[in-house]
């Protein structure tokens, strides 16, 4: 497999009245062609800001991509002039968002919103575009597609609207689809429909997907590889089976332990104490140090670098000074919660 996109040392900050927000702090990764990459993190971990940085959609001011490069098919997207970036956005990289109601224009028909990109990027005329739009709608499972092109967004349910968003995203056969919490606003049975649909379509369109989510369960089901983000940094990454079965970072481990499992009866949940750090403070040392049950002195002063885990899969990386395999982390976190 060839590398489709390479993100190197990406740094994004927001300069607000309350101070500088250090949203994304030096992240690097590679995305292979046709691969589904899951990006997991809590609110404020920088997972959405990172994707907006890739797309050149950071509102400026107050935001600014301070450093880094995003090499997509041989070009650095961050250096592209706006008119060329516009040709990439929608055509080569498409994006779908969490809330399908606010990302569709309520006063335009579904048809005119889908055909807009087809006419712009593919140079189709009205008839061709309408025909293709109807095809796309039936592809994403909307019955009676041709007549629904004349409907407005409010005439669709939440799950249907997300299907429309996916149809719009796919309209120009993108190489990369960035999905930012696409199922978070949906009910579980509808979420299952959408995930099923995306899995089918990614084969058909042969595209890579960046799937951003806070739900470890959803990511476990759809991703080939995952990145775990915390406080704007990548703390662990690797093949999805490796990260779940051979977890190496205390934060990832804490997240997995704090989740009750539906397939078995769980005992008392082991929670991660404290709350995520204030992103207005620059990171000094490990960002997780205040909440970490296995911290050592070094963690407070030296920021760990993301590197291959000892004796693990070659793709598996983490940023931690401690080898959690040597410690009984369960006992450690219980000890921490008592203090």
């Amino acid at each position: 497999m060839a590398v489709l996109m390479e993100v190197n040392n990406l740094v994004t900050r927001f300069y607000t009245q309350e101070g500088t927000v250090y949203a994304v702090n030096d992240i690097s990764y590679q995305l292979q062609e046709g691969e589904t990459l899951g990006v997991v993190g809590e609110s404020g971990s920088g997972k959405s800001v990172h994707s907006l940085s890739i797309m050149g959609l950071i509102p400026s001011p107050p935001g600014k991509v301070e450093n880094g490069e995003v090499i997509f098919r041989g070009r650095d997207l961050l250096q592209l002039p706006p008119d060329q970036m516009r040709l990439v956005r929608g055509a080569e990289i498409a994006m779908i968002f969490q809330d399908p109601m606010t990302s569709l224009n309520p006063v335009l028909t579904i048809g005119s919103q889908i055909t807009e990109a087809l006419k712009l990027h593919m140079g189709m005329n009205n008839n061709q575009a309408n025909e293709r739009a109807a095809e796309l709608l039936s592809l994403v499972g909307i019955p009676d597609a041709a007549s629904r092109l004349n409907n407005y967004p409010h005439q669709f349910s939440g799950g249907m609207r997300q299907r429309v968003m996916i149809a719009m995203g796919l309209s120009c056969n993108p190489k990369l689809l960035i999905a930012d919490e696409p199922t978070t606003a949906l009910d579980v049975t509808i979420q299952a429909q959408i995930i099923d649909l995306v899995k089918r379509l990614r084969e058909e369109f042969d595209m890579a997907i960046i799937w951003i989510s806070h739900d470890l369960g959803v990511v476990a089901g759809i991703a080939d590889r995952i990145i775990v983000m915390y406080a704007g940094t990548i703390v662990e990454s690797g093949m999805v089976e490796e990260v779940f079965a051979d977890t190496r970072h205390p934060y990832t481990l804490g997240l997995l332990q704090s989740l009750p499992r539906m397939d078995r009866r769980s005992q008392r949940l082991i929670s991660i104490e404290g709350s995520p750090p204030d992103m207005r403070n620059p990171i000094d040392g490990c960002p997780f140090v205040d909440r970490c049950p296995v911290r050592i002195d070094r963690c407070a002063t030296e920021t760990p670098v993301l590197e291959g885990v000892p004796e693990g899969h070659q793709d598996h990386m983490m940023a931690c000074w401690v080898d959690v395999r040597e410690l009984d982390i369960v006992a450690a976190s219980e000890g921490a919660s008592e203090t």
């Binding site: 349910s157 799950g159 249907m160 009910d187 579980v188 049975t189 509808i190 979420q191 299952a192 429909q193 995930i195 099923d196 739900d215 470890l216 369960g217 959803v218 990511v219 476990a220 089901g221 999805v240 089976e241 779940f244 079965a245 997995l256 989740l259 499992r261 539906m262 397939d263």
Partner: peptide
């Protein structure tokens, strides 16, 4: 049954084997 089968479990091996009952349509 459909509701329970739709819930994703944070375990990739289990997810690969999972047989989902996908309900059609909306409420």
């Amino acid at each position: 049954q459909a509701l329970l089968s739709a819930v994703p479990v944070p375990d990739p091996m289990r997810e690969k084997r999972a047989q989902r009952i996908i309900l059609t349509g909306d409420v």
